[in-house]
Amino acid sequence: MRHKWLFRAQLIFTLLVCGFLIVPVILSALAGITQNFFLGIKSGVTLHWLGEVWQLYSGTIYLSLLIAIWCLIATLVIGVPAAYVLAKQNGKLARFIEEIIVLPIAIPGLAIALALIINYGGFRDFRTSWGFILVGHILYTLPFMLRSVLAVLSSTNFHELEESAASLGASFWQRFFTIILPNAKSGILAGALMVVTLSIGEFNLTWMLHTPETKTLPVGLADSYASMRLEVASAYTLIFFVMIIPLLIAMQKLSQKTNKV
C-alpha cells in the first residue's frame, strides 16, 4: 500500500508543478480574448484586442518573420559548409575556430549587442536598418546550427561515405549534394528549427540593437507590457504563442524521430 501512496503523492506534486507553470499561460491567453480582464471572462469574449494588436504591431510580426527567415538562410549558407569543413579537419586550428564560433552562446546578448554598436554603430544606414538586428541574430544562432550539423556529421562515418562516392566517380559538388547534405539532413532540420525559434523569440540583443523603426515581436511585446492595456499585451502574447508553439512541437517531434534511429 505504501507504493500507492507514494505514487499518489508524486502525481499530485507533478500536477501542482505543471499547474504552476501552465495556469499563468492560460490566464494570459484568456486575458487576450476577454472584454475586461478585471471583470473576468464573464464580461464577454472578444477578438477586439487581437485586432488592435494587429493594427498596432503587425509590423513587428512581419519584421520578426523576415529576420528569422534571413537568419535561417544565412546560418544555412554559413553554418552547413562550416560544419562540414570543421568535421573534416581534425587539427587544433579547426577546434579553435569551432570554439570561437560557439562563443556567442556563452557571452550575454547585451555584451554582443554593445560590441556591435561600438564597432559598427557609426555606419548610420546600417545602424538604422533591420540588417543590424539580423547580424546580431546570426551571431547568436549560428552556433546552434553549427553544433547540430557537426553532431550528425561526426556520428556518421561521412568521410568514408565521401571516399566511396568519389571512387564511384562523383565530383566534390556531386558528393556534397547527393551524400553529405542528405545524410546531414536531420541535423540541418533540427538546427533550422532551433535558429528560427531562437530568432523569433530573441529579446536581449534585439532590445539593444533595435530603433523605433525596427521593432521585432519580442521588443514590441515589452513595449506593450509597459504602455498598453493588459488585454492588448496578452493578446499580443497569444499571437506570439501561436507562432512559436508549432515550431517547438516540430522540434520535439524531430528529436524524437532522430533518437529512435
Binding site: 561515405l161 571512387s167 545524410n183
Partner: peptide
C-alpha cells in the same frame, strides 16, 4: 580518384544510408 574508373569496397562497406 573520381576520374580513375575504379571500384572500391571498404572495410565498413561505406554504403549510403540515405
Amino acid at each position: 580518384i573520381e576520374k580513375r574508373n575504379i571500384g572500391m569496397v571498404f572495410q565498413s562497406y561505406a554504403l549510403f544510408p540515405n
